[in-house]
Amino acid sequence: MSRIVRTAADIIYPFILIFGLYVVAHGHLTPGGGFQGGAVIATGGALVIVAYSYAEVREWLSKNVLMGQEVIGLVGFIGVALIAFAFGQVFFFNYLNASGSLFGIPVPYGINAGELNTGGFVPLMNFSVGCEVWGGLTLVILYMLSGLEKEGC
């Protein structure tokens, strides 16, 4: 693409990244969550892939790193849910809620201002799902692009 598009992509990409991470981090307070935030970040990756050629992008966005990110996301999701067994609870029990530790401030019933340090293990789940969706969707675009490259289109 032209220099204008590349410069615009360079400027916009960090903001897309920050907005996506914001949506992931505030998933338990505002509309959004892990999946939506990860999709937002993946659109940033798609923007960079469109603005630059595949040969250049291949050096920045490593397929192995993205695949590892996806695996870490899924394994982390299951692992966070499995830790509940250590507390003598059932699978997917919210053991961190109202515990006073990380993300453990109790939330009263009714309208309140919202505190980032609440939600039990829901923010951890959001982070792992966001990590997985980020890696997965970017990886799909990269793989399709590499397939096109091979055919000579």
């Binding site: 338990h28 307070l29 509309p31 809620n97 453990g104 109790p106 939330v107 009263p108 039990g120 829901v122």
Partner: peptide
């Protein structure tokens, strides 16, 4: 809200 600690009920 009390059982999961999330203000966003969709996420809970």
């Amino acid at each position: 809200q009390e059982q999961t600690g999330t203000n966003n009920q969709c996420t809970s």
